[in-house]
Design a protein around this nucleic acid. Structure first.
Length: 422
DNA sequence: TCTGGGGTCCTAGGACCC
DNA sequence: TCTGGGGTCCTAGGACCC
């Protein structure tokens, strides 16, 4: 029998982070918007009750926002990232090992804790997180990650669990799985869900009982592994060491569409500069760079074009100026006049640690360049990303993203630290 | 007028090689 | 008219996740 796995998941995470520092947000409907203030990506329970869905564009919500006095916030990733560290710190004593899965979800390896009542154990952990951060959580316990995800969803949905569901009990597991829609299973998206329901597979329980061969035919090895996990056979362990990152991206939608090449290069230069900064932060170099841009895909009535080109970087590099030059080469080849572009980005591939970078025969002395990059990073770290920029970016940044309702950096910026008067 | 950003994994198919 | 078989590597695109 494999060691139990738990998944702790923060409820309405971004909203809960905002509420930790602004009590006027408690008990009222709140939504947090995506970058560019585009759509709702986090909703409080009250906002969900009003029918607001994940990903709803804000301009479709104007009426309901006004009618119900919904509080609307831009996203504040600095705050959410810092709060995540505190959540993990609170969980530390409760597990042997952790795998941080996303900003609000962490898998815990409970090997060595089997002797205890794991439901009580999880309750104590939730309480610790609540005390340290005010953030409410739910915990799912099971023998595989997929079942732990399912347990967590059950704990969120069904009040009888009081925030902690343990699916290691056969009867409980069966009952939950037979009531669980197949499309809500972790790893089953819209396309696969349609195929499965056409075959008469409507619940997690039915998916678990599907023959492995059939699962593979419907959804390749991915679905086959998923069925195994639903049967309690782990195909994926809790891995505390993050695997080496394969790619990296800096992409943005524009506040105002971009129609001319120079302005596009302004945006792409900025993204390439930021991409270089991210590479250096992780001690990596990239072997390939892709630049892309496209028109508004939500407006098929307008002329559509998407261009993308990939260029090889040799030598491999994390030098922002080389990335900008590569971005220009790629963009020139992909460019077409006469379109209103609404999004662009830089993708980096073939990432390798700086120390393992293959050396080439004709390499310029990079010491000077390294110092320049170091200075650039230091300035932008101190005064905010995109304080020091390159001349190629231009100074008219009409395309820059919107973020008009962002909360203060309560925990990471001295000027924003909340003041308490007693 | 206004619809996010950043990832992972897998497969099919083309180019190329012997 | 008939035109191999088996590899590798790379890329584009689909599907999925938060």
């Amino acid at each position: 029998m494999s060691a139990p796995i738990a998944l702790i998941d923060c409820n309405n995470y971004y909203v809960s982070c905002e509420r930790a520092f602004d009590s006027s947000l408690v008990g009222v409907p709140v939504i947090v918007l995506s970058n560019n203030d585009g759509c709702a990506i986090a909703r409080s329970a009250e906002a969900k009750a009003l029918g607001i869905k994940m990903g709803d564009p804000i301009h479709h919500l104007r009426d309901v926002v006004r009618r119900h006095g919904i509080r609307v916030l831009s996203s504040n990733y600095t705050l959410y990232g810092d709060m995540q560290r505190r959540v993990i710190a609170a969980c530390e004593p409760f597990a042997r090992d952790f795998e941080i899965y996303s900003i609000d979800e962490t898998f815990l390896d409970l090997a060595g804790f089997e002797g205890r009542d794991l439901v009580d154990h999880a309750r104590a952990m939730r309480e610790q997180v609540r005390l340290w951060t005010t953030i409410p959580t739910c915990v799912g316990i099971a023998e595989t990650k997929t079942l732990a995800k399912l347990a967590n969803a059950a704990a969120k949905k069904d009040a009888r669990f009081e925030g902690v569901a343990d699916l290691r009990d056969d009867a409980v597991r069966r009952e939950v799985m037979d009531a669980f829609a197949v499309g809500d299973v972790w790893g089953v998206g819209g396309a696969t869900a349609r195929k499965l329901t056409d075959l008469g597979v409507h619940t997690a329980g039915a998916l678990r009982d599907m023959p492995m061969k059939q699962a593979r035919a419907v959804g390749t090895v991915v679905l086959e592994r998923l069925v195994a996990e639903l049967r309690g056979v782990p195909s994926d362990a809790v891995e505390s060491v993050a695997p080496r990152r394969k790619g990296m991206a800096v992409t943005r939608s524009f506040g105002t569409p971009v129609c001319d090449f120079d302005r596009m290069m302004g945006a792409l230069s900025q993204y390439a500069l930021r991409a270089g900064e991210k590479l250096r932060m992780h001690g990596l170099v990239a072997g390939r760079l892709t630049a892309f841009f496209h028109t508004n895909r939500n407006r098929p009535d307008r002329p559509q074009y998407g261009g993308s080109r990939t260029v090889t970087l040799h030598p491999m590099s994390s030098d922002s100026f080389e990335l900008i030059a590569a971005a220009r080469r790629a963009a020139e080849r992909a460019w077409r006049d006469g379109y209103a572009y609404t999004k662009a980005g830089i993708l980096l591939d073939d990432l390798v640690p700086e120390a393992e970078r293959p050396r080439t025969l004709f390499e310029a002395d990079t010491a000077k360049r390294d110092r320049l990059m170091g200075a650039l990073d230091a300035i932008n770290a101190k005064f905010g990303t995109w304080t020091a920029v390159t001349a190629t970016q231009g100074f008219k940044r009409e395309w820059k993203l919107r973020s008009e309702m962002r909360s203060p950096a309560w925990t990471t910026k001295i000027a924003d630290v909340p003041m308490v008067r007693a």
